[in-house]
Amino acid sequence: MATSPNRQHPAFYALITLLVVMSVGPVLLMFVNSFKLDVDIISGATGMIFLPTIQNYETALCDVLWYEPEHIDFCSLKFGGAFINSLIIALVSTVLTLVIGCMAAYALVRFRFMGRDTVSLTTLMVRMVPPAVLLVPVFGLWNNEFCLDRDGLIGGLIRDTFGGRRDVCLAGTHSGIILIYVAMNLPFVIWILQSFIVQVPRSLEEAARVDGAGPFQVFFLVVLPLIKPGLAAAAIFTFRIAWNEYLLASALSDRNTKTVPILIVNNMSEFNVEWGVIMATGMLLAIPPIIFTLFASRQIITGMTAGAVKG
């Protein structure tokens, strides 16, 4: 404000440096440790001086590597598969949430479908529901109710194609996990996009309509391109939740649909933690969010402030 940028107190810069070290430090520490052997991590005497190794990453990714690392006898950690599951689940649920949320937000703003109050109240209500609260009903429903009878037409077809003796249920499939993520994220996405769609000038849409565009054309060709920043913010937030979520995924997934967070938690609860490998898996899980943070921090901040200040 009053003081010019180049006349700040030195203590001020010290404070900023301290803050940066504090917020980035733990991540860096994990990064460095993921290149250390367990021996080095436990002895700790060497500090920053050590021989970097990618052995931990080789152990973690052993099921997708094209060569066989010599230090592994048996590939027990199926990280590659889990990573692919995570990727499928997070990407599909992000895309679905955005498309569905966008349409709903547009209808709410343009057609005065319900009062804004009702919408923001519902959004808030749903935002407050913790995943832990959904655990019990989702577990029960996805395993028992949302099933196709195995003797029925479609259920029988799926059973014959994919095998399996029991009824075909949502639990244990990618779609089961995706469904709950889409539902969890929709309210927030609708809320954020709403605040962006309100700013799109109505005259633009009317001009398009006069030129003979139908409601869907107006939406996809006129409105969508104008709310790109909002879409980016919403996409990042949805992806982040779908990518990072542990609890519901752990209740719904089976051996083949495990996501990365589940894998990490399972390995952490073992008695003898292999720090190096765990940190490597953690680092791999953290890479997509880190990339988003580096390249889209403005959108993230937009989303954060829109979600909170107008909430």
Binding site: L19, S23, N244, Y246, L285, T293, I300
Partner: peptide
């Protein structure tokens, strides 16, 4: 500063 918020809680 936003880095800690974006990283998975598990991590």
């Amino acid at each position: 500063f936003i880095l800690p918020m974006m990283i998975a809680p598990v991590v």
